[in-house]
Design a protein around this nucleic acid. Structure first.
Length: 612
RNA sequence: GCGCUGGUGGUCUAGUGGUAUGACAAUGGCCUUCCAAGCCAUUAACCCGGGUUCAAAUCCCGGCCGGCGCACCA
């Protein structure tokens, strides 16, 4: 069995994820997360939220997944909605059928004709494949729909779409969000939610699906004045695959620190560099194998319609490089478009460091003269005067000024124009913020964590599989077992289980079969530690055995008779350990060799082992 | 969407024109003082539709779902 099959089998059998509605034959592109997977995904989202929202001091919103058509007209997503595709049966390349028809026939807006009519036009005009020259007469014309459409309310008068990205739910609320941020740039708004794309060909399990979860951060920055503080990530090393390397013969990765990448211009936007730094630490924290990870810059042709520059985080999964997150500079594309289409304001007032005083020629016409003189043409006269004052103030030097209205020249006494050079104080200006967007495909990050955590080794002659998940992500944090369910061991183990659950740990109690079987069960779903209540616990000093998942090593942890003793603190420390040691997340519970402090620990001096 | 290939208990699988093999898992019991141990029992499957046939899980056609390749991928 290949590793991919093995992972799929594990995911299905142990409840990480599986195809949706299998009872009805399944439906391509939809997966359900089972008990373990839902917990892992939730923990993953929490880790993302902690790092990209909470720790950055950003806000989080939760918008609807369906929005009315105008939103997607503005966002540009609708333009691609009615694309008609035609596939050449000779060379199997796909083309925009409407474009071919427009080019050949001079018809404008062929897109609106529908597939049937376009197919007829292709046939009657004997349009050939631009790639190989074969006639496309019999080639099928199909609609290329990426957005799922629906109707809002009864009837079809209010079309809506399932969002193809979560971001739009943030952009359309920009006005309020800016207000909540007290109109101070930069500010960030995060969102974790579902998005939908009617993919032509869903593939590779949860990697390419039609309903998926995105975790997106939209950072609104001033194009002029906002700058990131790179100090915290300056020394983080990045594996970069820039455009010129992708095009070169060598095709080599470039290893640079964040500060080097910015200073040497490898990454143009310091904001992108900042987030690549943060993301790198985060990916390490959640257990992504950095040797199977890179940042690849988008080639110009790959960029989305909104993107100025984009770097993808890619992970190697099953021998393929998969995009797991994208870091785009979206410019002010989205906000300008929404401002234009909605008529609302999508700007933030940015005061200058010091108010600027400028001298400006202006007019203040005497309407009691212009009104009677020009009648309904008076407003046009005012407009002409204003324009003239701005363009050619010296024209107001004489007694009269000549202006042209509707081809007629009129002389107007300068005295009634109220012309003057006025002094104005300008405190700042309205700017449309630029958007920096780190966007994570949660399902793909999930797939990466799952695959990169997959391990096989041999313990006492028996092969075993386990998931080396960081404690923070593990669906179950601890297993609690009585060595056997007798002589009070079961009761004690159930007490400990309840006490740990009260402290908020996800704990599984298990007294079935043999102890080894129970360890293996937990190994397979990545439970970091297992506690065993044995005779020493109930008849001796009360201590329990604590077993480490990755090394299968065991030590004894003292317990107090009436409570958890040191255990609670030890487990709390285990749980938070990966977060505080983000750069060295391959942390192991005291496997007699703490990777954090590099000290070997015989288990006797427990406290020493846990000191950073 | 095209091409190749596959679909049998929860999982992995054997199999033949006469409704099905085995293993693992699961559940219950016995045993058991720390790594998938042993014994007993139980639960549990031929992707869907149509056709051929006395009879189809098996042969044929179509569909659905998966894998791989191509195309697509905001």
């Amino acid at each position: 069995m290949t590793d991919h099959n093995r992972l799929t089998e594990l995911a299905t059998r142990r409840g990480f994820y599986f195809p949706t509605a299998g009872a009805y034959g399944g439906v391509a592109g939809f997966y359900t997360y089972g008990p373990q997977g839902a917990a892992l995904k939730r923990n993953l989202e929490s880790a993302w939220r902690e790092r990209f929202v909470t720790r950055e001091g950003h806000m989080e919103v939760d918008g609807p997944t369906i929005m009315p058509e105008p939103v997607f007209e503005a966002s540009g997503h609708l333009d691609g909605f009615d694309d008609t595709m035609i596939e050449c049966s000779e060379c199997e390349t796909s083309h925009r059928a409407d474009h071919l028809v427009e080019d050949e026939t001079g018809i404008e807006d062929a897109e609106s004709l529908g597939t049937e009519r376009i197919g007829e036009l292709v046939a009657t005009h004997e349009i050939a494949c631009p790639n190989c020259g074969a006639l496309l007469v019999d080639a099928p014309v199909s609609e290329f729909n990426l957005m799922f459409g629906t109707n809002i309310g009864p009837g079809s008068s209010a079309p809506g779409y399932l969002r193809p990205e979560t971001a739009q739910a943030i952009f359309v609320e920009f006005g309020r969000l800016a207000e909540y941020a007290r109109n101070q740039l930069p500010f960030g708004v995060g969102q974790i939610g579902k998005a939908y794309r009617n993919e032509i060909s869903p593939r590779r399990g949860i990697v390419r699906v039609r309903e998926f979860t995105q975790a997106e951060l939209e950072l609104f920055v001033s194009p002029e004045t906002s700058e990131p503080d790179l100090a915290s990530v300056a020394d983080v090393s990045l594996t970069l695959y820039p455009i010129d390397e992708q095009r070169s013969e060598g095709r080599e990765y470039v290893e640079k620190t964040v500060s080097e990448a910015v200073e040497e211009g490898t990454i143009e936007s310091p904001w992108i560099a900042y987030y690549l730094g943060i993301a790198t630490e985060w990916y390490e924290r959640i257990g992504v194998d950095t040797d199977r990870f890179r940042y690849r810059q988008h080639l110009p042709g790959e960029r989305a319609h909104y993107a100025v520059d984009c770097w993808d985080a890619e992970a190697e999964l099953g021998g393929n490089w998969i995009e797991v997150s994208g870091f785009s500079t979206r410019g002010n594309y989205d906000l300008s478009r929404h401002a234009e289409r909605s008529g609302g304001s999508m700007t933030v007032f940015e005061p200058y460091d010091e108010p600027r005083t400028i001298e400006r020629p202006a007019v203040d016409p005497d309407m009691s003269y212009l009104g009677p003189e020009f009648g309904d043409r008076a407003p046009a006269v005012v407009e002409a005067l204003e324009e003239r004052a701005a363009r050619e103030p010296e024209a107001f030097d004489g007694e009269e000024i000549e202006i042209e209205i509707d081809g007629e020249t009129h002389a107007i006494p300068v005295a009634v124009t109220g012309f003057d050079v006025i002094e104005e104080t300008i405190a700042g200006e309205n700017v449309t913020p630029h958007v920096i967007e780190p966007s994570f495909g949660v399902d793909r990050v999930f797939a990466t964590v799952f695959e990169h955590a997959f391990r096989r080794d041999t313990v006492e002659g028996e092969e075993r599989t386990y998931l080396e998940l960081p404690p923070e992500l593990a669906p179950t944090f601890a297993g609690v077992f009585p060595l056997m369910d007798r002589d009070g061991m079961g009761e004690r183990a159930r007490e400990i289980t309840a006490a740990l659950r009260e402290r908020g740990f996800a704990v599984e109690y298990d007294d079935s079969g043999s102890i080894g079987r129970r360890y293996r069960r937990q190994d397979e779903i990545g439970t970091p530690v297992c506690l065993t209540v044995d005779y020493e616990t109930v008849e001796g000093n009360g201590s329990v055995t604590l077993r480490d998942r990755d090394s299968a090593a065991q030590i004894r942890v003292p317990m107090s008779a009436d409570g958890l003793g040191e255990l609670g603190a030890v487990l709390s420390d285990t749980w938070t350990r990966t977060r505080s040691h983000a750069a060295s997340s391959t942390f192991r519970v005291c496997s007699f060799r703490c990777r954090i402090c590099s000290a070997s620990c015989p288990g006797a001096n427990w406290a020493g082992c846990w000191s950073p």
